[in-house]
Design a protein around this nucleic acid. Structure first.
Lengths: 356, 356
DNA sequence: CTCGCCTACTAAACCGGTTCAAACGAGCGC
DNA sequence: GCGCTCGTTTGAACCGGTTTAGTAGGCGAG
């Protein structure tokens, strides 16, 4: 016998076992398999534990034996703090957290530089990669560790699940909407195509190098619609700004609206960019949609609240979050692909061009 | 000798040690204390590890020995998913995540019911309790486990740090602003005072029972200002709605604006409630601030973007998040108290009453 | 030549539990 | 009185590392 119940003063499961003269297995069972103990003994164990100030099995140790930590990890492309200023990302997080809540799982937000220092050691059972990027440091850490993971909006990766939308079709429907209204001079507001913080009008070569899948697809969608309408894509300026917030949209739109002839319609690759564009239009004394039409992408809540309400492409970020989390809960389904619907929502920010 | 390098096919540190005929300590050192090994041996170890498909020490096991998981926990009063629809909470999260990022810490969002099932086992070193509530299930779990924690906006708890603002003064300044403008018929929009999902006009007795510290303090602030101006507090209707979003504000304001005589100014305990109130005013065909003035609390970004821009009490949620996280990083400082500044921001949603 | 010290590495304890096969005793049918 | 089953309880292995005290060997100084 002679276990080591009192080492260093810490109260461990062994302390309790010794105090009662029972085995550690018994104490462990009192917490994890109460039905295996006589109720008398169980009560004695629990009572003694309380008396000794034992707060129950140390989660870390329990976890090591069991091999499960009951936590889902979430890796974000950029610093995690950026996610909180992106309404779409916040909705996504909400979706994920709903599932976590329901399943009694913790949600672990993993940031810590591209090197993946945190990703390498984060205590999680599986990971949602909310990023649109080829394997970089963080994702590599996940792959190395052999953790199950799901990619959202990004590329399909072998062995990993996938949740996304038909970005191309969504973008095409937005462009077609404007073209159908009679617009011929379009401008595009793009989030960063390449991860180099460059800003300016992205030429075709740069568009081709677009690194982020969703970006690339949306660009292709715009282009297909423009060309299908008989226009030249090369005549459509694509203004790229970094990072990807409202201010970026404002600056990109300012540049586009300063062109002569002025575009009569702006296609924004996100609602945040579009809302920035509305501010730029106001700055320039232009009315929306009288002088310039604006169409966004995402349909975040602020889109409907805007003045005028923003025409945009709806996708459910929350549902994406839910799906991603659920995919990880059913391991056999991890390699699944979920493609969620998109839908053009016509509101007040788009109308016929001024000359019509 | 004869270690157990290959049990069940899993590649562990022992596998690598055996393959090389060195001790496990050596392999461990190769990763954690490279300087303790000759570079020759270190390279051999790392190389063999790669060859065997060993991804490095299992974080869980490492953690058990070291006793640190490098993660901060965050407990939210309500279901975590609610936090993502509250702009103030999102800003707070952003502040926390900034620090986590900088310190290479994971941020663990803990939800999972009031019973604290998740809180009891979440793998974290310390906890931020972003809730304004006496010890309930979740917090009890934290206390039992002896984790260091910080309370934000809630009550001061012995041994725990605290971050908050002077809610009373902030509320008083909002009320004083309206009273100075000449308003005499005020109405208050309150978030839940007691956790019973009740809705209606909270009488003095119910106000007294207000369970949430911030709520209680803001109410007192309003009251003090009202009484200092020579008015009777009991004449000011306090409309309570549950939960605490924009829709709640809309409903509360609708009720207040239906009163005769109609209040000429509304004090909202949060910007979300205030923005809901603006919608209610529009519903009722009332102009803001012509027919009714509205003042919020928080100064979230949407406040400045509203039409008209919202007068409100500014506090920095992000800074609160940062402070809370930082408090936990310096253990000796955990019992500290941080009181952040508040400031009235006068914008366009408040003006003199109609008769002036 | 010897002592002491330093470097490179190892054995064994430890982190705090969980789990599984086996032991034990009691009750029961025959 | 015997063999069985059932419900409890336990010893020992295990989870996968980290760490500390200590050893072997090489080298310089005295």
């Amino acid at each position: 016998m002679e276990t080591d119940g009192r080492r260093g003063g810490r109260v461990t499961l062994a302390t309790v076992a010794d105090a009662l003269g029972v085995s550690r297995a018994t104490v462990s069972n009192a917490y994890n398999h109460p039905e295996r103990l006589s109720s008398t003994l169980r009560d004695r164990v629990l009572h003694t534990a309380r008396e000794l100030g034992y707060a129950g099995p140390h989660p870390l140790a329990a976890t090591l034996s069991r091999g499960r930590v009951n936590a889902l990890g979430l890796i974000y492309e950029d610093p995690m703090s950026f996610a909180f200023s992106d309404p779409a990302a916040v909705l996504f997080l909400q979706g994920v957290s709903e599932v976590c809540e329901h399943e009694d799982l913790a949600l672990v937000l993993i940031s810590g530089g591209p090197a993946g220092a945190v990703a390498r050691v984060a205590l999680v059972d599986a990971v949602i990669c909310y990023c649109d990027v080829p394997i970089d440091g963080k994702l590599a850490a996940v792959v190395d560790r052999g953790l199950p993971f799901v990619v959202v909006d990004g590329p399909r990766l072998p062995g990993a699940g996938h949740v996304g939308i038909d970005d191309r079709r969504g973008a095409a429907s937005a462009a077609r909407h404007l073209l159908d209204l009679g617009h011929t001079r379009l401008g595009v507001l793009a989030m960063p195509l390449v991860d180099d913080e460059w800003e300016g009008t992205a030429d075709l070569e740069r568009q081709d190098r677009a690194r982020y899948r969703a970006c690339r697809e949306r660009l292709i969608g715009y282009r297909e619609a423009v060309e299908a309408a008989g226009h030249r894509w090369s005549a459509v300026p694509v203004e790229e700004r970094s990072p990807y917030g409202r201010d970026a949209g404002r600056r990109a739109a300012a540049a586009l609206l300063a062109r002569r002839p002025r575009p009569t319609a702006l296609l924004a690759m996100s609602d945040e960019l579009a809302l920035g564009a509305m501010a730029a239009a106001a700055d320039a004394g232009l009315s929306v949609p009288g002088d310039v039409s604006i169409v966004g992408f995402d349909d975040v809540p602020a889109a409907a609240d805007a003045h005028p309400a923003l025409t945009t492409v709806r996708q459910s970020h929350r549902e994406k979050g839910r799906r991603a989390a659920e995919l990880l809960l059913r391991p056999h389904a991890v390699a699944d692909e979920h493609r969620l619907p998109v839908e053009l929502v016509v509101r007040a920010s788009s109308g016929p061009p001024p000359w019509r």
